[in-house]
Design a protein around this nucleic acid. Sequence first.
DNA 1: CATGAATGAGGCTTCATTCAT
DNA 2: GATGAATGAAGCCTCATTCAT
Lengths: 221, 221, 221, 221
Amino acid sequence: MSDLDRERGPKFRRRAEARPDEVLDAALALFIEKGFAATRVEDIAARAGLSKGAVYLYFPSKEAILEGLVKRAVVPIADTALGVLETYAGDPRLVISSVLKMVAGRLSDPRMVAIPRLLIREMIHFPQFAQMYRREVLDRVLPAVERLLQNGIEEGYLRPVDPHLTVRSIIGPIVLHMLMAEIFAITPPGGLEIGRLIDNHLTILFDGLSAPKSDRRFMAT
Amino acid sequence: MSDLDRERGPKFRRRAEARPDEVLDAALALFIEKGFAATRVEDIAARAGLSKGAVYLYFPSKEAILEGLVKRAVVPIADTALGVLETYAGDPRLVISSVLKMVAGRLSDPRMVAIPRLLIREMIHFPQFAQMYRREVLDRVLPAVERLLQNGIEEGYLRPVDPHLTVRSIIGPIVLHMLMAEIFAITPPGGLEIGRLIDNHLTILFDGLSAPKSDRRFMAT
Amino acid sequence: MSDLDRERGPKFRRRAEARPDEVLDAALALFIEKGFAATRVEDIAARAGLSKGAVYLYFPSKEAILEGLVKRAVVPIADTALGVLETYAGDPRLVISSVLKMVAGRLSDPRMVAIPRLLIREMIHFPQFAQMYRREVLDRVLPAVERLLQNGIEEGYLRPVDPHLTVRSIIGPIVLHMLMAEIFAITPPGGLEIGRLIDNHLTILFDGLSAPKSDRRFMAT
Amino acid sequence: MSDLDRERGPKFRRRAEARPDEVLDAALALFIEKGFAATRVEDIAARAGLSKGAVYLYFPSKEAILEGLVKRAVVPIADTALGVLETYAGDPRLVISSVLKMVAGRLSDPRMVAIPRLLIREMIHFPQFAQMYRREVLDRVLPAVERLLQNGIEEGYLRPVDPHLTVRSIIGPIVLHMLMAEIFAITPPGGLEIGRLIDNHLTILFDGLSAPKSDRRFMAT
DNA sequence: CATGAATGAGGCTTCATTCAT
DNA sequence: GATGAATGAAGCCTCATTCAT
């Protein structure tokens, strides 16, 4: 009978504890598509398959929906990233490589980038949520990356660079790649090609843009 | 006639033909500060020192003000950047260094980053302006950078990397640095320190993160 | 049967047939506290200890709850007052004194004034209930008071005043006292002091505000 | 030409400084007629001859309109009453008589009673306005009446009653008369007859309800 | 009987735009 | 040209009432 119930369709899905999540899913899609301000609560309700009023059974305001989105995104992201970062051993370049490749995979999932994208756009109106994201995600992940770099330096794998600033050199190219694609629709000829981007970036990141001395036909002045 | 104008004294219509620009200045400041949607035409008028109705003498709509802003920013930026990029000779790393350092200087001027910042946030609602910016600025500057890299490779200064993707490795870290500061208020302990960021980034960019073989205490596995 | 009921213990359906009254009790408290419009059916249900839907098992609408309140209040009030008024004999001033003193006692019970208070505030929206209250209570009590006065006049206890209008002179001061306390929080220094008010009022009511001729130091002009 | 302007009708009445007052007039009529909550801002606008939005040029919220009403009513009422009360000399009964008769006249003007009526009904939702009215009107008028009574007592015109409580005996009957007419539509057979009410009330107030000893056919027990 | 999730009409408020002066 | 009063569409939110369970 419970199987039957499940098959009856959404009209009979009462007391669904999944409702808040359905609302968040609908809201996330619309916020990304049209922005927070241009999304009407009624749109969210329609996409989630309920009435306008029902949304307010789960969230006290439109802003609370955004807050719910950020909160929901906060825990798994940080945990995933930290899990990888804190269990490494040996050459940190291997960790960086694999994390960036993993990140590349995740970035194809629009749900993973959705929250940062949202925050970039709406941060002015809701700085508190940007700060929440920073506190729960960035303030936990970035220091872990910095420790990784610091250890790599101390153990002789890496040059003595500033770990705090070097984080930007590692992640920045990927962020810019996404931004250019998203904002200006500037992509490489063959598509997003995140894999190729990362390969190209890792080569430069680890070994530098300069040609090896033996390869050089001319000397730099 | 311009002499005549000047002699009329500052009180008489001194800004008659400068009015549109003053409206744009006011609008830019407010759009950055509060976002496009949250900025009222009346606010712009007040900050520009004229009446709400007068704004509509110069711009047919609020959206046209944004369009005017993007248009005004488009020409000089591209020209400046192209001027530097296309007059180089010899080692492209010197050009990259000096351009990035120049960029670092410019980035302290909020007016220079204002339009991209605006587009990042409002692009969803006005993709046509993002495309205009792309067409007039990015589509002219990025190919010039790519040519710079291509030449550097052909002349043996640089490794044989993908010029299109490598642009992201050059600019991405700086963009990310600004974004983190702006959205999440994440700055190095001593302030924005754009200069130190660029020095650190150039070291990695040109010579790589890996320790030189002679410095290594351990061997990478 | 009432014995049986009592033996069933408090836990089992102890309030099954008392439910409507508990709803009314809850509603009265909330209507007085926050007004009819600002009281939500859900609030009433919560205070009465049942669910929102259950309220609609007993009352077809929110308005019907108000109607139920007025109806419930109507019968006992009139009966009590009429009982006292119609069994007097002799000097009507003794009846007036004792009734006013009794009233003073009752007025400390918020439930006694609650309905008139409610009607004063909500009358605009529900004139039919005000008229019901008038028909069932006032139209029975006021004529009785008027007859009391008329008899007192005819029997020589009272001056030949207009009985209809004199009712206002008897009750008005007490009503005003309550109103000022309730609406404007204007009370005598020592509290509501209904007893002192009535003593002062009775003195004036029966013997007048004017000083007895023998006491007067000056003659009125 | 300015005469012409005035005759052109309301469509051309721009920059009218009278607009806020017109809004208040419209709001007062509707608040009295239907209550604050049941009156829509659009109703007020329509009755005042403007659009919904225009109301918000003059008042920031619906509540502010109510506040404006109370404020507008506060000054002239108190001033009028105080003017009469503080310029008396001699027998205070003459002042009481003439003030009550004046009050009776004023009470026929619905605008004079409108604010207290409003406060009686809406006080729960806007106690701050009831307190403002109290502070500005009642706290100035009532003490003046009490001083009048106190002087009358000290000069031998009046019995030694409590002035604070006696105010209720003076005004209460009139208030009750109005309340009964308004809430329950209970009026004397011949209409409101405020004049007759006051005559009857003054007789009782000054000389008491008890029959003069010489008139009594029976003795009180 | 009882529950409480769901509905949807309705009102306050904002603000881009217009237009009489 | 310049003003600023006026317009009215649009959206968030509340809550009485319904109804599947």
